[in-house]
Design a binder for these strands. Structure first.
Lengths: 224, 224
DNA sequence: ACCTGAACACCGTTCAAGT
DNA sequence: ACCTGAACACCGTTCAAGT
């Protein structure tokens, strides 16, 4: 049962080593982006990076850790884009705020579709656990605060779960469109907006009679 | 560039061969369900099935085809459950109809969580193309017709895209909850309902000014 | 401290030989 | 027609040897 560590094995201490690590990550991204998961093997990565396979294993304990590092980078870049977007759309109508965020997400997915899709899949499969949660919490918190503060959502309780659901919904619709032969981004944008507005601006949610279950308490969690 | 075929290589002609195929598929499902993608190798499958590796390759051209067969089975079983659910909830309020479908989806995902999650991921990664579309179209069509005919959705145009979006949204929220340490199914059920109702029962969608794009035509596709 | 690449282990797939 | 399992190819990972 190989409980594989996903953290980098050690940090480069010399300048040239830092370059090596950078080169490896770039090569990995390029290989993943060109041929997706097939052909994504350490030998090819080493070849593209112009280093020996052994060098990869000096810094990453296994292939999964390499992928985890790429995911971390993608998350960081997304987090920056989200925060910039929130700042730019401050004080605007909710529709504008949401559209701006949707555009960020679409750009993130379609900017390098193959890479983004591959990373998304690996993100699910790897037991990343906490590793990425720092950045993810950073994004989620920023969005949650923006939504909570928005006048049009005065009547909506925006919990952490609500925010994460919005991410989940938007991501799923965007990824789904990305797998189509001829994506229609304008229509996609509308559909995601509709879904998010619908989820957030629900008209007077009446309590629903439902089948018996164990956990019949408060349905939304508090923010951490 | 191995464009791998995903269809079964040949059908068993003798009774004992049919048993072999069945045994292989069951073993594959069991292995996948126990250890997910790690440890899901042909040698183990053959061992669990009590046959030789060679036997697997008599009926399936590669490992992916085996997975594809499992996915096909899961889809068939889901399709049946959906159709039964629609029949039972005929004539009921929209909320009831949706909740019944949501329960089917939740049961499908949580019934064998590891297996379902693994199959979902592979479903994305493999170029299944048409292969499964038969069953998927069957499900989608049944749901679309039920929604279109529903009085509460008289004002909503329920296209094929609308229906697929509902599937995408529900599936994403359910899968997301499935990865949590302690899933709260009652709360999940409510959230999915909220999302679907919000998407379907949108109050007077005003047209939205948006950035210029090529495709500025009708945003929803016709049903096939 | 960093890099190399041959060597090892594991796993997908094939094929000659069997019934 | 079906089944077997040793053999081959490929790829992840290690490690002794180098700078």
């Amino acid at each position: 049962m190989p409980k594989q560590p996903l953290l980098p094995r050690k940090k480069p201490r010399q300048a040239r080593a830092a370059v090596t690590v950078e080169t490896i990550l770039e090569a990995a991204a390029r290989v993943l982006s060109k041929r997706s998961l097939d052909g994504f093997n350490t030998n090819r990565i080493a070849e593209v990076a112009g280093v020996s396979v052994g060098s990869i294993y000096q810094y990453f304990p296994n292939k999964a850790a390499l992928v985890a590092a790429l995911i971390g980078r993608a998350q960081d870049s997304l987090a920056d884009a989200v925060e910039r977007s929130l700042q730019r759309s401050q004080g605007q109508r909710l529709e504008r705020v949401l559209l701006a965020l949707i555009d960020v997400a679409i750009e993130h997915q379609f900017g390098d579709a193959v890479l983004a899709a591959a990373l998304d899949h690996e993100e699910q499969r790897l037991p990343l656990g906490q590793m990425l949660s720092a950045t993810q919490h950073r994004i989620a918190k920023a969005v949650q605060e923006a939504l909570q503060a928005h006048p049009e959502l005065a009547k909506t309780t925006v919990t952490a779960t609500t925010t994460i659901d919005c991410f989940t919904i938007a991501k799923a619709l965007i990824e789904s469109e990305a797998t189509r032969p001829k994506p229609d981004l304008a229509a996609l944008r509308k559909r995601v907006l509709l879904a998010l507005q619908g989820y957030l601006l629900q008209p007077a949610t009446k309590t629903i009679p439902r089948k018996r279950t164990r956990t019949d308490t408060q349905s939304v969690q508090e923010s951490p």
